[in-house]
Design a protein around this nucleic acid. Structure first.
Lengths: 331, 331
DNA sequence: ATGAAAGCGCTAACAT
DNA sequence: ATGTTAGCGCTTTCAT
């Protein structure tokens, strides 16, 4: 039998109201009673029922986290920080994975809402019309734009421009770009940031499009690279690090040396980026800061949850997968 | 204002009991009323409050998932499948990350229990004494042993023996092993499976110990490899794929060719294993099957949740990071 | 087959 | 400062 607040009250010889106040910590309970109650709680090993509390307070101490793919290291990192911060704030995390399926996304969010979470952190798949979810669950949209909502995210456009700058600065002129799925706003933002910057410098990149994963990067990379050296790009940027890693694999399979014959730059700076061979040049995201702001906004409805955009700068991390174009000639 | 079951009842001209029965789907409600109620539900966009339902039923439609590290691809994969299966069963997933900290683990589980989940899936850090959690939350322990519980897991011991067999069969005799943290049961099981098998073949491996991550694999790899060729192992097995990938990196830094001069075999078969260079030979885990059984056991208290062990076989996946020892000589 | 009513375990308003 | 009490929104007997 699970003990409840009534058992504690009876055992301690106080009213359940007093026990509740001790639980809430902030109320005015005399020191004597407080200690008595606390002792009884320990003695009976009483665990407050959050479900009952949630019903009464009309919201639970949970935040819903909706992400497309937990096996994507960037989202895993985000989830990790969100969970840690939430836990420290006494919140639980309800995890939903949409698997990049818009219908599942809608169903998942509807399902989450039934548990009356305090807040929702969602990385949406599509920028489609905002679901009209309940006013008392503040929603903060992260990483990808959802119309009608503020966006908390790294500055995809600016970050991609950083990548373009880096490549141009290295002397590359034949440049290709592996984009993410066209229906994802994040793909469009990164692509636009990269391509616009290149065009401004008079360079017209070859663009291919795929998913945000290793496999896609490898396949697309092969398509871009499997041709005569003078007809292929000397530098390729990708929409995320996983594509870049797949691309590295394709290059290796084709005997193309990185960075001597090909420069590669990714986006995200996942942990693996610094560990593969060659270490990947990429655009780093301030994930922990994003997580921190996301939880805060989900809790109090401020920031991005209040409709304001909150864009953080990405940072160029130069490693060994990019080099000046001249190296090719000297090789 | 959020609509509740009372609003629906009033609007449909029935009792709340009838609405509840329609919601439960399985009750005996006349077709006429049923349709009327369903229409009203749609009309008012009624979303049943799971918190109230949970209070009344004394448990919620949630399962708690407790894992050490979501950025570990194996756990990410596990979480992904658990979430997908749970969602299909109408359950939500409460995610807890223990970050390999025993104190956090205990606190997380206590916290989860306050939400009265139907079941708990936990990948424990330490084999320490079983927490006496509530009888009405069935707990299934996955991947790592917790005394007093059944274990649902790949057969770590047998899988590691497979790896040892593979290396021996390739003719290797100077073999090293990078183990996981000694306090993790999974480390001990894999290590024992590998080492015992080797000893039975008269081979005494050199063993080093570290964490289950890239960084540790790289550092330990360097320690093992940074010596004269005739004094170092011709094959190294690791306790997981991430260590193996770190090891590959160390080998590459030292100019040691894999698999020509060194064979490397991992454990887990994470997605990345088939994408790095060289593609990693490893022991594959039936993650999805584990997830399926974990959710089933968490729901009905059967299988591993009933105290029975449920060990699934791992499978040797041969790729390009292992080769016969003779190759070295011919090189 | 349907309605009425009693809680589930808590919080918060209202008394004292 | 502490006790009493009315619900939160459902599910589930128990009547009818």
């Amino acid at each position: 039998m699970v003990v409840n607040i009534k058992d504690v009250a009876r055992q301690a010889g106080v009213s359940i109201g007093t026990v509740s106040r001790v639980l809430a910590k902030n109320e005015t309970v005399g020191p004597a009673l407080r200690e008595k109650v606390e002792a009884t709680i320990r003695e009976l090993d009483f665990k407050p029922n959050h479900v009952a509390r949630g019903l009464r307070r009309r919201r639970t101490d949970m935040i819903g986290l909706v992400i497309p793919d937990i096996t994507n290291p960037f989202f895993a990192e985000l989830a990790k920080h969100v969970e840690a911060i939430a836990f420290r704030s006494g919140l639980s995390v309800l995890l939903s994975i949409t698997n990049d399926d818009p219908e599942i996304e809608v169903a998942q969010i509807e399902s989450l809402l039934k548990s009356r979470p305090t807040g929702l952190i969602v990385v949406p798949i599509q920028s489609g019309q905002s679901q009209g979810w309940k006013g008392d669950t503040s929603t903060v949209v992260v990483d990808r734009r959802l119309v009608g909502h503020g966006l908390l995210s790294v500055d995809h456009h600016g970050g991609a421009a950083l990548a373009a700058d880096h490549l141009i600065g290295l002397g590359h002129r034949r440049i290709a770009y592996i984009a993410g799925p066209a229906d994802a706003p994040v793909s469009r933002a990164r692509r636009a940031g990269f391509v616009d910057h290149l065009k401004a410098a008079g360079i017209e990149p070859e663009i291919v499009e795929g998913h945000f994963d290793y496999v896609s990067g490898e396949a697309l990379g092969r398509r871009l690279l499997d041709r005569a050296p003078e007809r292929r790009a000397t530098a390729i940027a990708t929409a995320n690090d996983q594509q870049a890693i797949g691309l590295l694999r394709a290059a290796d399979d084709l005997g193309i040396k990185v960075p001597d014959q090909l420069s590669v730059i990714g986006f995200d700076d996942i942990p693996l980026a610094s560990l593969i061979t060659p270490r990947l040049t990429t655009i780093g995201q301030p994930v922990e800061e994003i997580a921190k702001r996301a939880v805060a906004a989900a809790l109090d409805g401020s920031g991005a949850a209040a409709g304001k955009d909150d864009l953080l700068s990405g940072v160029l991390v130069v490693r060994n997968s990019t080099a000046a174009v001249g190296v090719e000639i000297s090789a």
